[in-house]
Design a protein around this nucleic acid. Structure first.
Lengths: 196, 196
DNA sequence: GCACTGGATGTCAGTCACTGTCATCACTAC
DNA sequence: GTAGTGATGACAGTGACTGACATCCAGTGC
């Protein structure tokens, strides 16, 4: 998914185009260069050529600039779960959603890797990532409920699927020659099911 | 101006014991009364009879005042996992740790319920809770690894066990006549295993 | 009794994340 | 060309946190 496309369609950044994308790029550069806490919101705005106030109009807080695509991933997972074959078990349907969401990452592996490194280096960014994963759990559970899955089973399958997503992502990122995100998810899901 | 005079009139010396406990109590009262965001760190400190600076000496940030027991729960879980019978599966050992940790909550059910309501009402507190749960996952996985469990299986079993803990806690809190935390965990774990 | 010391506290100044408000700018529709 | 719309800039203000330093209380040695 291209931030440029979205912002252009929304008509944002009318002066220099893609102010939002410039802020995201500037933030990732600065966070990587000198760390998250050593970077002020003013620093990011300056490098992106906007005012600090404009930064906070685009992003609810300083951390949010790193999580721009999370909504799109949720929607993708949601749609894929509803589109999964009716005979899929709740867990399989949820995993299909994770594979679909992972596809968005696969398109920009380099970006995903750099981003995950930045997050790994700062606890307050990890905190925000956990919140996004929790939102993914909620969305996944909601999709499962629309497939007539029990409240409890929807919650458990959603948690399990997002756990698989999370663990598989770590493997996919760490292994340079990894076979692809879908394969990582399949492996991880198999290991989860093998748990006694 | 003499602090001594003021505090003496209030019936408590500067070194009045359990400043930490007073701050925790004051925070829970105020958060419940007017909400987390409407309560300043200065408000909490004032009600507890200390300075704002002292509050931040005891708690890394304003949220942390609600998570004082989390370290003890981690330790309890860790010890219980290592103490579990050798023939327990990784998941069963991890679940034994969750039951042990839940015991700390059972001792003060009322406090746990009020606390969970406060957290449920504020996203930034939920974020912090997720971080604590993630720490619990890490500790659980570490304990499992010391039981010679594979890296991957330790991670997956730890995630699964903490998921069970989290889901079971929600049930335990919502049901006034619930059968006890251990039973809630057993039920939830059975449902998780029944997932296809 | 008394000086001394360590740890906890108070005070004050300062940075930075974020917010509300209002004027201004670029583009669009008419 | 004029009015409307939405993004932006400028500026002031609040509150979360931090660093530096003075102060206080309790315990220790004498």
């Amino acid at each position: 998914m291209s931030v440029t496309v979205i912002t252009t369609l929304l008509g944002m950044g009318r002066w220099e185009p893609d102010a939002r994308g410039r802020m995201i790029g500037a933030a990732m550069e600065l966070f990587a260069e000198r760390g998250f806490e050593q970077t002020t919101a003013g620093d990011i705005a300056e490098r992106a050529g906007v005012s600090e106030r404009t930064f906070f109009r685009h992003f609810a807080d300083k951390r949010e600039v790193l999580f721009d695509g999370s909504e799109a991933m949720e929607r993708t997972a949601y749609d894929a779960i509803l589109a999964a074959p009716a005979d899929h078990s709740p867990l399989d349907a949820a995993l299909a959603g994770m594979v679909a969401a992972g596809g968005l990452l696969e398109d920009r592996r380099d970006h995903a890797v750099r981003r995950s490194r930045i997050i790994a280096a700062n606890p307050s960014l990890q905190e925000r990532e956990l919140l996004k994963l929790a939102a993914m759990v909620d969305t996944t559970a909601k999709a499962l409920r629309e497939r007539e899955v029990t409240e409890l089973n929807a919650s458990l399958a959603a948690h399990s699927a997002v756990t698989v997503f999370y663990v598989a992502f770590a493997g996919w990122v760490s292994d340079e020659e990894s076979p692809g995100f879908a394969a990582c998810i399949a492996e991880t899901a198999a290991a989860l099911r093998a748990l006694k």
